[in-house]
Computed example of a mutant assay.
Amino acid sequence: MEEQAATIMSEMPKLSSKDFYRLSNFLVEIYRLGTHNEWVNHLLPSLHTLIPSDRASYNEMRYGKTNHISVKTYPDDSALRRPLVPVFEQYTHEHPSASYVRKTGLRPALRWSDVQDPKDFEKTTLYNEYFRHFDTRHQLAVALSMSPSLLVPVALNRGSRDFSDRETLMLNLLRPHLIQSFRNSRTLTALKSRSRALEHAMDELNRGLLEFTRRHTIRWASPQALRWLSVYWPGEATGDQLPPSLTEWIKQQEASFKNNKAIPVPQSPLSVDQGQRRVLVRLLREGQQRFLFFEERTDGPSPEDLVQLGLGHRESEVLAWVSRGKTNEEIASIMGLSIKTVKKHLERIFDKLGVESRTAAARMALGLSGN
């Protein structure tokens, strides 16, 4: 066994210290990238430079009743390639390495010459009607993703000389990192897409959402939440730091929770007025993530408006404060009543309006004033 291992090692191509230096620099950059498009746009020229080629390509080969191939290349050859893509789609079964990978399930870096005699490939329709137009006679490729209906390879193409064992080894060493960084870019792209959908939904509902760190800096925020920070805390919001007064309220809320359980919606959200409008802020936590949920409201109906619902003056006043998001404790303090008296007023309000909750009563009051 030791002799066999020694023989294999002696037959492997040698990489120089310069090769390893270039590989390490390549990996640092490829993991630093963000979305899928950014990843592809950086990968192709970088790989083209690391392993010299005439053309580097990223391909998504979808198989079905009719095949569909999408290709990005560096340098860009879309003007020449676009009218030839139907040929590629029709004769993709003649592609040497793609056919081999789909048949065997193996995904090492492969040259065409590893799986088919170049002279035989040059007799195929795929070569003569597609690759010949790009003067491509040699290819080195690796599959990043594979399923029965999809194959995603990245390939290097040459016309003059085949790729060496050393260059094949370099691509094989990169293979697990290319696959992982490819998956990372796809995941980040999906998350950003969902984030944009959430932002749009929040804006449509006139709501805002913000995630912040333990240091009370903004990690992520919907556009509406950022607008309200500047409107309701003018001069306080600087950079990614939450306004000091908002931070102080958060600390007070968190101090009342002694464990790591998710913080429920507080009974008393923070209410900040600005003219005839106000924003309500609620603190939420899921695991280690902390969120602020914003909801803007206009001033609710006046007690005089609510009399027409058949309520007495005191009952109308209590309901007006309920519609503004005040708690029983706050209403009692504002009106100089006991909490028990406030609850009695609410019971009579519910009975007269035919509702069973303060939310339903507040909705009727706000509907009366057009809010």
Rank of each mutant, 00 (worst) to 15 (best):
Q4D: 12
T359P: 03
L226G: 03
K192G: 12
L210G: 06
G105K: 11
L319K: 06
Q253R: 13
H68E: 12
E60I: 10
D162T: 04
S245I: 02
V272N: 05
P223E: 07
I263Y: 02
Q289C: 03
K18R: 13
T66C: 05
T298P: 11
S302F: 07
H36V: 02
F294N: 07
K72M: 07
E2V: 10
T66D: 13
S149P: 05
P264W: 01
L110G: 02
E2Y: 10
S10R: 15
F88C: 01
D19L: 08
T73E: 14
K326W: 08
R137C: 06
H48L: 04
L174F: 08
H177D: 15
L171Y: 05
G105I: 04
L226T: 05
S245T: 13
E329T: 08
K192C: 06
D203R: 09
S16V: 03
I250T: 00
L353E: 11
Y232T: 03
T187E: 15
I250C: 04
A109Q: 04
L171G: 05
P223L: 04
N206P: 08
Y130H: 03
M9N: 15
T247W: 00
V307E: 15
R282C: 11
E236C: 04
Q276G: 09
R227D: 13
F182Y: 15
P75Y: 02
A6E: 13
T49S: 13
G354A: 13
L151F: 03
P243S: 13
L280M: 06
A365K: 13
T104N: 07
Q289A: 10
K326C: 09
G159K: 05
L150G: 08
L337G: 08
E38P: 07
K344W: 09
R207T: 00
I30Q: 14
Q289K: 14
V318A: 15
R278K: 15
S149L: 12
E254G: 05
H95A: 11
L246C: 12
K251T: 02
S302P: 11
K340S: 11
L173P: 14
H36S: 10
R285G: 02
N157Y: 07
E248M: 07
L311V: 03
K14A: 08
A201F: 05
T66I: 04
P52N: 09
I263P: 01
E356L: 09
T136E: 03
I263S: 02
W39D: 00
P303G: 04
V231M: 14
F26Y: 10
V342N: 00
L226S: 13
S222P: 05
Q252T: 06
E199I: 01
L246K: 12
K192D: 15
Q252L: 11
L50T: 03
H216I: 00
E122P: 08
S230D: 15
R277G: 08
V85P: 08
S16A: 11
R227Y: 05
I69D: 11
L126H: 02
L198V: 10
P86H: 02
I250M: 01
E3G: 07
E347S: 14
E330G: 07
P83G: 01
L144Q: 06
I250N: 03
A221G: 07
H313T: 06
D162Y: 00
N37H: 02
V87D: 05
T359V: 09
R297S: 07
I263A: 01
T92E: 12
E89L: 09
N371K: 15
